[in-house]
């Protein structure tokens, strides 16, 4: 009985010290990671929608879609040019986050991944390459998007996310006309 207590205490102690150390490193690095992510997102928003001058975050209907994390209205010269969605879907290994842009006429204007580190390098990670971009950009929102052979799970998840973005986009449009 005594030895079990001792073992438990040693293990708990080791775990506690490890936890403390981790939280220290986390606090040290988290601001840098956050700042880098924010800056990267800003760069991506402008790169995905060239010509966009201002990105206004909108929250209408967002809570109906679990995959949409953020939605930005792209404004240029006081008119709405299109929308950029930040999506987060379940890939093969975990969350895949990416941006997809739709313009006012209903064409996929851009596609850019933010984080695919959960996916297997060389397989699921291919959704981050130009290969996937070519399947999305320039297509009409009504057309069917093809998954990538060999990376089916990740790319189909990405495409389902894009479908959600389209559904939300149409809700926004419908809401406006009524």
């Amino acid at each position: 009985m005594k030895s079990i207590m001792k073992l438990g205490i040693v293990l708990a102690l080791v775990a506690a010290i490890s936890g403390g150390m981790l939280s220290y490193v986390y606090n040290l690095t988290n601001p840098i990671i956050e700042a880098a992510n924010l800056q990267r997102r800003e760069e991506q928003l402008t790169s995905i929608y060239d010509g966009g001058e201002e990105f206004v975050e909108i929250t209408d209907y967002i809570d109906q879609f679990s995959t949409i994390t953020n939605c930005f209205k792209v404004v240029k010269d006081n008119t709405v040019e299109g929308y950029v969605y930040q999506m987060s879907v379940n890939g093969y290994g975990g969350k895949v986050t990416y941006l997809v842009a739709l313009d006012e006429s209903g064409i996929y204007k851009g596609y850019e991944t933010i984080d695919v580190t959960t996916e297997t390098s060389g397989f699921g990670s291919r959704v981050a390459t130009d290969e996937m971009k070519a399947k999305v950009i320039g297509k009409d929102i009504g057309s069917k998007l093809d998954a990538l052979t060999g990376a089916t799970i990740t790319s189909s998840a990405v495409i389902r996310g894009i479908d959600d973005a389209v559904a939300h986009y149409q809700m926004l449009k419908g809401g406006k006309s009524s």
Partner: peptide
């Protein structure tokens, strides 16, 4: 590097 090494 973090992105390219990914899950490994």
């Amino acid at each position: 590097l973090y992105t390219s090494l990914g899950v490994f």
